[in-house]
Amino acid sequence: MDSELKKKLQEKAKIIRQDIIEMLCEAGSGHPGGSLSIADVFSYLYFSGILNINPDNPSDKYRDRVVLSKGHACPVLYATLAEKGFFDKSHLKTLRKYGSILQGHPDMNKTPGVEMTTGSLGQGLSCSVGMALGARLDDLNINIIAILGDGECAEGQVWEAAMSASHYKLGNLVAIVDKNGLQIDGFTKDVMNSEPLADKWRSFGWEVFEIDGHDFDEIDYSIKSALSIKDKPVCIIANTIKGRGVSFMENVCDWHGKAPSEEEKEKALCDICNLKLED
């Protein structure tokens, strides 16, 4: 990846992470861990130019669709959409408050840029299958990207959806699994082991890439490859660190669904600011 673009994406990821922390502190509740783990992927999806997403034309028939199936990680989506210009950043302070356009889990009718209402885990990939089928019926040359969690992969519906996507040869569908290895009750391997995860997706007929979900070169390579594969769906397993960028949140289960205090916020922002960037 060209170094200028990488720098830009790193800068965007930093802003997204800062906004996640700020909005969660203000809200007093919410999910920082799984938002921070997928922030680099979001930066790439919305700011690399790889997808057709334009806040000035949010109902463009030809737009690519990103569906956040792991809906609890909506702070990363809201921060990204605000940074992209779908709505004013002042809304971020209203997260989870009564009357806000930013609900505790994504609501497609309240938030500009949110493509699907999600929050009950396991449903987003199925919705994406429907979108991919609809796009194909209309000969729309667009991409549907579904973002799932590794804990979410315990939902049976994910595999119903996976089976149907390969049955219908949905080459316009990409699933990105944010494999941060943690869920509410502990490590995914202890709560409900999903391994071998890549083999599961392969056996369901998907092409699979396993990448470092914080390495922009690997994100870039895998997504470009995924978009070029047209005869079957592609799953990108993004190995990530839950809470990535905030030292005291990284790999700590308790930060799945807890908001930082004012004091913790300051430390978190400081950590994000000092996050060592790779060349």
Binding site: V129, G130, A132, G134, L137, D138, S164
Partner: peptide, 10 residues
Amino acid sequence: SAAAGLATMG
């Protein structure tokens, strides 16, 4: 859920 996805596509 797939029906919902199809509905979002018109």
